[in-house]
């Protein structure tokens, strides 16, 4: 058994703040939107919490952004700029989740500090972190003070358009949360990835001819989509 350091401290801090924030935003968002159906707190409290947590999550985003921009770990998103190889590996990963995992096949992707994500994770997390999350931040910020940002709101088509986009992304994350948590349980053990996000270390059984986990390599050791970006 060997330990591989795949989740550096900034990533772990960012992840758990983000996770807590997302849950809080979803709960308060549900309370704001469905006040007649849910009675966890008053509308006023829900709005206040939603606003404060929103700003915390926005600030937290920059921990993630700056860490990857200013460290060599950015390779976890682009270990190789080879589209053909990427799509071949992505197809292999889809086949694993669809069939291989059911037959007990080994995960074709093996994580290491510089190649943490399987191809599906790499694509999905980049879309989420560089497109969907920023859009959610911007729409949330605009809705926080529609008057202050009236020009931007108008440019984007009006307050209802902005709100609808915000709600659509909220719906996406509400569904994503289930799948994210489930896939995180598909590690070596059901709790392996969860522990790794606290300790920073993934554990992997020794195999003959395994690469040095501390060396830059495109070869991973069993990363799952549950691993955080």
């Amino acid at each position: 058994m060997r330990r591989i350091y795949v989740n550096p401290l900034p990533v772990r801090v960012w992840h758990w703040i983000n996770a807590t924030g997302f849950v809080a935003l979803i709960v308060t968002g549900l309370q704001i939107r469905y006040g007649g159906l849910i009675g966890l707190m008053s509308f006023e409290t829900a709005v206040d919490l939603h606003n404060w947590v929103g700003f915390v999550v926005i600030g937290n985003y920059f921990i993630w952004l700056f860490f990857y921009l200013f460290s060599d770990k950015i390779t976890v998103y682009h270990p190789e700029l080879n589209p053909r190889k990427y799509y071949r590996e992505a197809f292999r990963q889809i086949r694993y989740y669809g069939f291989g995992i059911l037959r007990g096949d080994p995960n074709p992707h093996h994580a290491n500090p510089y190649n943490k994500f399987n191809p599906l994770q790499r694509m999905l997390y980049q879309i989420i972190m560089l497109l969907i999350v920023p859009i959610q931040f911007v729409t949330g910020l605009l809705l926080w003070d529609v008057t202050r940002f009236a020009g931007a709101v108008e440019w984007l088509g009006g307050v209802r358009v902005v709100d609808t986009v915000h709600v659509l992304i909220f719906i996406f994350f509400a569904g994503f949360l289930f799948i994210h948590i489930y896939l995180a349980s598909l590690g070596r053990t059901p709790s392996a990835h969860f522990k790794a996000m606290f300790t920073g270390y993934e554990e992997e059984e020794d195999e003959a001819g395994e690469d040095d986990p501390g060396r830059k390599s495109t070869r991973g050791t069993g990363g799952e989509p549950g691993l955080a970006p």
């Binding site: 939107r33 006040g35 209802r160 609808t164 509400a174």
Partner: peptide, 23 residues
């Protein structure tokens, strides 16, 4: 009605359905 929206009061019914389906 791009220029008017009241949270909770004028929510789009189709998005409610979509939320249930996605969850």
């Amino acid at each position: 009605v791009r220029g008017f929206y009241a949270i909770g009061g004028t929510r789009i019914a189709l998005l409610d359905v979509l939320l249930v389906v996605v969850v």
